[in-house]
């Protein structure tokens, strides 16, 4: 989908597909694509992220979990950092402090997986904070149901503990 969205506006078909992409991203995250005159966040699929993490070379994104602590302790993506539920202002403050010194081109992947995608209260405030800070390369890991169903049960890499 990202590739389709980034191909440009060369034909009517591409235009329609691109607009649909913007609407779709908005619909699936609770963001409105045109609300601030800018497109919503980019999504990354779990298998795509696994490929990036397993690849030998290339820069790896900063992975940040914005879900609840009990979930993180049971299972999280190796190397990801726990910040706390994105709906919690304290967690947003920690997120701000964690990334403040980073270049605004730093690739960052946010994920939660607490609940079904449309119901997740955490990822939206976290994205908004990074967006407001000027980060241009932020992706949201699309977890349709929850972290257990869409990551752990697929045997993707998992770490445990605090």
């Amino acid at each position: 989908m990202k590739q389709v969205c980034s191909r440009g506006f060369l034909s009517l078909t591409t235009l329609v597909i691109s607009f649909s992409c913007l609407l779709l991203v908005g619909a699936t995250t609770g963001f409105s694509a045109g609300e601030a005159g800018t497109p919503g966040p980019s999504l990354i699929q779990p298998d795509e992220l696994v490929s990036i993490l397993k690849s030998a070379g290339g820069p790896k994104p900063l992975l940040i979990q914005v879900g609840f602590n009990v979930l993180y302790v049971q299972a999280h993506i190796p190397g990801s950092e726990f910040i706390g539920p994105g709906l919690n202002p304290d967690a947003i403050r920690r997120l701000h402090e964690r990334v403040e010194a980073l270049p605004r081109t730093q690739p960052i992947v946010l994920y939660c997986g607490c609940c079904p995608w449309n119901e997740c209260p955490n990822i939206k405030p976290a994205f908004r904070e990074l967006d407001a800070m000027g980060f241009k390369n932020v992706k949201l890991l699309f977890i349709a149901h929850n972290f257990g169903e869409d990551w752990v049960k697929k045997d993707y890499p998992v770490a445990k503990g605090k």
Partner: peptide, 21 residues
């Protein structure tokens, strides 16, 4: 392939709010 991915994402999105069973 991209069209398939788009359809898959749509399907997942519409189903995401439902019970996992």
């Amino acid at each position: 392939k991209n069209r398939g991915l788009l359809i898959l994402t749509l399907a997942l999105s519409f189903g995401a709010g439902l019970s996992q069973g």
